[in-house]
């Protein structure tokens, strides 16, 4: 890599006295003194959260109230600070989601570890985990800052679904002659 020596412009006498610069600076700060305040008064005023903001990771349900996560553990795998901990479980019985077979028994995200990178959202094949607009996380103990499954669904709520993949699958199963031996 070639180096270009840049000659610094010699300072004029006025510049060497600092005074014009100091005076200019004083004028700038004076403008701010009378200018508009830019502070957001936080608890009362809240910042507008832009779409695509990466807030606290949350779990979402589809519009039919089905929990979308199937505990594939890809988010746990991809999570750089290892903040996610999933205990997989099986959906047993004959409930409406029994054909999905798998769901998390426990799902914990340690917000003390989370770095809000959004890789979990990116990797999720079921579109079940989203970094939404919750940005304020606080608690009195470390345990409080580990979001469990219940808290995650409470934070996440319901998001629209474009695919209804499992519903389609169920419809196909009920139409199929060989699905139920």
């Amino acid at each position: 890599m070639s180096v270009i020596q840049v000659q610094r412009k010699p300072l004029t006498f006025a510049e060497r006295t600092y005074l014009p610069q100091v005076f200019g600076g004083l004028m700038i700060t004076l403008r701010h003194f009378f200018g508009r305040r830019v502070t957001l008064e936080y608890p009362e005023q809240r910042p507008e959260i832009a779409p695509g903001y990466r807030g606290v990771p949350t779990l979402v349900k589809d519009p039919n109230g089905r929990e979308k996560c199937v505990s594939c553990q890809l988010c746990e795998f991809v999570c750089p600070p290892k903040a996610i901990r999933i205990t997989p479980g099986e959906i047993s019985g004959d409930g409406p989601s029994a054909h999905v077979e798998k769901a998390p028994r426990e799902f914990e995200i340690n917000m003390l570890r989370c770095i809000y990178c959004g890789l979990c959202q990116e990797v999720c094949p079921e579109e079940a985990i989203f970094l939404q607009n919750v940005y304020s996380v606080s608690g009195y103990s470390r345990d409080e800052l580990v979001n469990d499954k219940e808290k995650l669904y409470q934070l996440g709520g319901t998001l629209p679904d474009r695919h209804f993949k499992w519903d389609k699958k169920q419809a196909a199963a009920s139409a199929s002659p060989i699905a139920h031996p």
Partner: peptide, 10 residues
């Protein structure tokens, strides 16, 4: 097309 649907838990 629709994939075959077969028993999942035998």
């Amino acid at each position: 097309e629709q994939k075959n649907v077969k028993p999942k838990r035998t």
